[in-house]
Design a protein around this nucleic acid. Structure first.
Lengths: 264, 264
DNA sequence: TAGTGGTCTAGACCACTTC
DNA sequence: AAGTGGTCTAGACCACTAA
């Protein structure tokens, strides 16, 4: 049996997808639909909540319910880790990023806090150390304008970063060139990486932190960064608002029968 | 102001995360919480719906509300495309897959339909052809047991697959070795790929198709497969239940200043 | 048949925004 | 003050499951 609110929601969703309600357009007010015989206020409200959870609209008191504009996805490829960006100073990074993104460069807001914490099981596994070992955690919250887009927390082994600018809890984004530049200066040049990602529903805390619209999923990214000799120099966990990002990877089709060593 | 249902939901969520309610355990019945003064039936129900949307519990009529067990993520690395799997026949594929996954090999259920359709804009862009051109679409719905896990629809240019077993609408998974084997036999050996992925909320249709639990996001995967000379031989779109998969990619840190060609 | 969650109503009241 | 969505109630009734 199909519930009344589901029928109404489906009908409105169809009208939104067909463009009958364009992005930014306002849906009928709840009381009007009640008047029109779509059901009681609770029923219509339930339909509106469903549309909100499906990412189609946003409701707010006083404003009404409007069709959510679809923001273009920011495409993340491995070019964002280009050594030229961080090795050769800020000026180069500035140009490289502007060229790579093909649009106006705008420095993102970013808050940062550095702390010494005990490694959780997933962090410990990532850094190849025992659970409970002390590590440095550098947590950033990145915004586009005033809207948070993602968090990124890097974990380091103390012996790799002790005494560097990474540990120095000054304000601002870890100095010129960022964390990889600092590690480079300390004798650790990054060489290869592994990224693992999956999507899930955010917790209530994460919804508040990232100011997520109702129903928006998050993508959790786990990044392991190695030096040439295979040492893990950084393990990072990122949490991204799903509607803002896409990830792209290029790779050769592996052939274990030929190269006999798997991928990488 | 914090709503009453949100408070109740947060309290229960905390108890679930702390293990006070273990996976499979049953939450108090709605009427009991009403009795206990947590609010009216609607209020308690709203809290339970929130927990369901957060992926913590599943409710069903007659059964009650139980804590959802967390299924381990299936890790997808590029080793799943190993040429040895499809080039050297079924026997090798059997062994390679069992070795790679490290667990009992079990042939997944898979339904398949082949049709000739007009290319949508995204498919046209993927195959580098004009919008509206005719293409072959091979759609699979993959299940683990009786539970669907993902869909995968491959699109091909007609001139690449006309007359091959791919187009032949026989039952079963496209013959020995799958689609890549067929292309290989037709003179098109796959060489490199690009995968792009992002997460979103499913549509109502997709919820039904994949039998998704309430609130579960999906991950959409776009895969472009090339031959050695850069021809796009397949463009595929997959839709995955988010709670079942994680993706892993290994790569070298690029250095445009040194190799002067970016990544590929 | 008894017990579970799900839907729906009618209405009161609250929180936020705009005028 | 007027208008928007959001919360909450009390109760009726429905749909599904298990005994």
């Amino acid at each position: 049996m199909v519930a009344k609110w589901r029928e109404l929601a489906d009908r409105l969703a169809e009208q939104i997808r067909s463009g009958e309600y364009a992005p930014g357009a306002q849906l009928p007010q709840i009381r009007d639909l009640v008047e029109a015989g779509e059901g009681s206020k609770s029923t219509v409200h339930q339909a509106y909540k469903a549309l909100e959870a499906e990412g189609l609209v946003t409701s707010s008191r006083g404003h009404g319910t409007v069709v959510r504009p679809r923001t273009p996805l920011k495409r993340l490829g491995i070019a964002r880790y280009d050594k030229a960006k961080w090795r050769d100073g800020d000026e180069v990074a500035f140009i490289a990023d502007r060229v790579a993104s093909g649009r106006e460069y705008k420095r993102n807001e970013q808050t940062q806090t550095v702390s010494r914490v005990e490694a959780s099981d997933v962090v410990a596994e990532g850094l190849r150390i025992p659970v409970g070992s002390e590590v440095y955690a550098r947590a950033r919250l990145v915004k586009e304008g005033t809207q948070p887009t993602h968090t990124l927390t890097s974990y380091y082994r103390p012996e790799h970063v002790e005494g560097t600018r990474i540990v120095d809890p000054t304000p601002g984004p870890a100095g010129r060139g960022g964390g990889y530049r600092v590690l480079y200066d300390a004798g650790y040049e990054i060489d290869h990486m592994r990224e693992a990602l999956f999507a899930r529903v955010p917790t209530a805390d994460e919804v508040k932190l990232l100011q997520l619209p109702s129903g928006e999923p998050v993508v959790e990214l786990h990044r392991t960064t190695y030096t040439a000799d295979g040492t893990v120099i950084e393990y990072a966990i990122g949490l991204h608002a799903a509607s803002r990002f896409a990830w792209e990877y290029d790779f050769k089709v592996p052939d274990s029968a030929q190269d006999g060593k798997g991928q990488k």
